[in-house]
Design a binder for these strands. Structure first.
Lengths: 420, 420
DNA sequence: CTGCTTGTTTCATGACCTGAACGGACGTCG
DNA sequence: CGACGTCCGTTCAGGTCATGAAACAAGCAG
């Protein structure tokens, strides 16, 4: 229970949020429809929408004729009201991307980083530089950037400093949030890359319209992003969803985390290739590019390859079934480069393997799909972080100093919008 | 995003809820303290508390002298304002219990039921009869019973009919909610027994003060109750937490659910005894009372028993580790009759086994404890269901009708959009 | 131009929280 | 023993907000 009072201002914020959400999600809508679907009175809709139009957050977008009456005016979120920047700190590069409020990409920048243990300060510099670069490239006023979302492949503490622990980057306790905030006034949001990719799939990809889902990511590593009732499940310290290191073969193969029988040791790309090498007289030799070797395995027609892939599908099905049993999602979205490659060829078999291992009822209530967005969606997912905040707060005016709108400017603005 | 408006009434309800929660959870408090911890103005505290006192929901409970000033009057929830009835539909009996608002048990009733596939109508009759019986036994006006919480060992759909699927009872699609509501006007709440027991542990047992926890229950069956941010995690169709049938030994022992390698086949009481029989030349013979046989195993000094128990601790640790990795809880509470029996003797070993299988970071952020309430707490947990509703609504009846038009049923736009 | 239908805005009203002033209870000190 | 200070609780004027009803606006058909 949130032991927090509610004031009359919270009420207004909440109602603005409800309206803004509907307008943003369900495309252009008239005030009438807004009133019906939110149960707000038309008077309030008009009042709140008028305020948001005056602020430039919402705009009128043409009109639709109704049966003989006054045409309804459609409303949409003004794409140019503000901009969102998302960044993906990957293992080999930092990618920064700028979006408008319609989530259209407007500028992009990329910086290579050291493959092993990049210095956090260098990464922060790249991120801040990228933020400036995309802003300039898109010709956007930096003051119009509503937020900067950053995705990293590790766990992120939900504290003010946003301390990052990332094994793959060799980071332990890097206060990335504090470092970035020292270099920009734009609000910074940091989260795990799997979670932002999952969020992107939920909003724009295979998870659209679903409230409970698990996005299962299989690449070199194996992870999951759990979405419960529309919001990412984090757990006590934001490290929930460590699917890859759940035990699936008690006492089985050794995983790179040191334990025995982790799922990742069986369905992670490295684990699959290892098993293939064992069954295929050591070929392909270790050390080659993992994605190339994995493609080779998929194209291979040998018996060893078939066996390894069959086994993989079985293990993966059991792993997905564990997610289905524990989380009871409406949908499982399979992604990650290896997961997609497997899924494109073996999705029916993966479904069947899941059905074998899951309880009937939860399995019947779920559907298993493939990710629809590419791996670049990590940055877009990061950009959804400030967007989510905007929607949650109902787009509260950026300057807390009350900027009074003269009553005379409102009708003028409306008239201009219509004249377009 | 809850696409729901907020009205002035919601605000008042929310503020009453905040106050009521604090008064109920943190014992007697003065108005002053309430104002400070909730950030509500003293004026509002006074106003809202006055209303609740007038309704009889809150009462003054003595006073405490302050340093030379007017003594502060303490407030508490009036225990006799209303009563809560909780019921547990077990495999052999229906137990019904009545509590006052201080959660003191005031009356109890129990009815044996058929061990195999009891008729739902009989169970409903017992439940309704028990409701009357405890009400009369405690000398309570039936109108003062705020709600009737019922726990069943199966999944419960969150619909108006509260359809129950319970394999152990042989129930498939029993609309228990509708059946009970036909026999009483008291608001009925139905939920899974593991979840109500977990809720009881969270409020009054080993989970006090924790917001993220997993209550792991090991008996004949194996299940878990996940609590995320203070509320039970349900998933899309309320069957989340099916921990017992997650695969932990791929291709391992056959489980009674039909799959291979489920956790329940290794750490459920039946699975443990089966493994013991295999290692101990068939003794104790199958068919005896499970709890007796299990106690025998625990007391046994033979080598076979030691091995089986050692193995069990390992499997259990791996299973708990999976929960820790996936849910990242602050605490894992181990319960169930077999889980408690194991835990009382092997808790350090179980902790060690969990540490071996879990990732370091999530493991370091969690603590593993034993349940502190007996198995009878299932009924008490069921009684927390109406209590939770009372606290959430601040003791105000919910607004009845919502004139919301679901987006899907909206009339199709006949008019064409006109470019302007 | 007049009626008709439909969409949007205005207005008076009532519910609510808040800060500030007011009143009440208790101990202490002259 | 009474005045005073301190701390607690209540009352009141003021401001914010959503709402239903009524008014206003914009198109169409006679």
């Amino acid at each position: 229970m949130d032991a927090r009072r509610t004031t009359v201002r919270d009420m207004r914020r909440a109602n603005r949020s409800v309206l803004l959400n509907r307008i943003w999600l369900d495309g252009p809508l008239s005030r009438h429809e807004l009133g019906q679907t939110t149960a707000l009175s038309l008077a309030s809709v008009s009042n709140l929408v008028g305020e948001m139009i005056a602020e430039g957050l919402v705009e009128e977008a043409g009109s639709v004729e109704s049966d003989g009456g006054r045409p309804r005016v459609l409303l949409r979120v003004a794409p140019g009201y503000g901009y969102l920047v998302g960044a993906d700190v990957g293992e080999t590069r930092v990618q920064v991307e700028l979006f408008d409020l319609a989530m259209t990409a407007r500028a992009k920048a990329e910086y290579p980083i050291a493959a092993t243990g990049p210095d956090p300060r260098d990464v922060a510099t790249h991120l801040l530089h990228g933020l400036d670069a995309v802003t300039e490239q898109a010709g956007v006023d930096p003051a119009a950037v509503l937020g900067f979302g950053v995705a990293v492949s590790g766990t992120v503490e939900r504290t003010a400093d946003a301390v990052v622990h990332a094994q793959t980057l060799g980071w332990a306790g890097v206060p990335l949030g504090a470092m970035l905030r020292a270099g920009t006034d734009i609000p910074v949001h940091i989260d795990n890359g799997a979670k932002t990719l999952g969020q992107a799939e939920m909003w724009f990809g295979a998870g659209r319209g679903v409230r409970h889902a698990v996005v299962a990511l299989v690449g070199s590593g194996v992870g999951a992003c759990v979405v419960a009732d529309g919001v990412g499940y984090r757990g006590a310290h934001s490290s929930a969803g460590e699917w890859g290191h759940t035990t699936i073969v008690y006492g089985g193969r050794r995983c790179r985390c040191g334990n025995l029988g982790c799922l990742e040791a069986y369905v992670g790309a490295e684990g699959i290739l290892d098993r293939f090498r064992q069954a295929n007289r050591g070929r392909p030799a270790a050390g080659a590019d993992e994605e190339t070797a994995f493609g080779e395995l998929l194209r291979s027609t040998g018996r060893a390859a078939a066996t390894v892939l069959d086994d993989t599908v079985g293990y993966l099905g059991a792993g997905v079934a564990n997610l289905v049993n524990l989380f009871n999602p409406e949908r499982v979205v399979l992604g990650g480069w290896a997961g997609l490659a497997l899924g494109e060829r073996y999705l029916p078999q993966i479904r069947a393997a899941t059905a074998r291992h899951a309880l009937r009822q939860p399995y019947a209530q779920t559907s298993i799909e493939l990710c629809r967005l590419g791996p670049d969606a990590v940055a877009m997912g990061a950009a959804t972080l400030p967007m989510a905040r905007l929607l949650r707060d109902g787009g509260v005016p950026r300057e807390p100093a009350a900027r009074v709108v003269p009553a005379s400017t409102r009708p003028v603005q409306r008239a201009r919008a219509r004249a377009r």
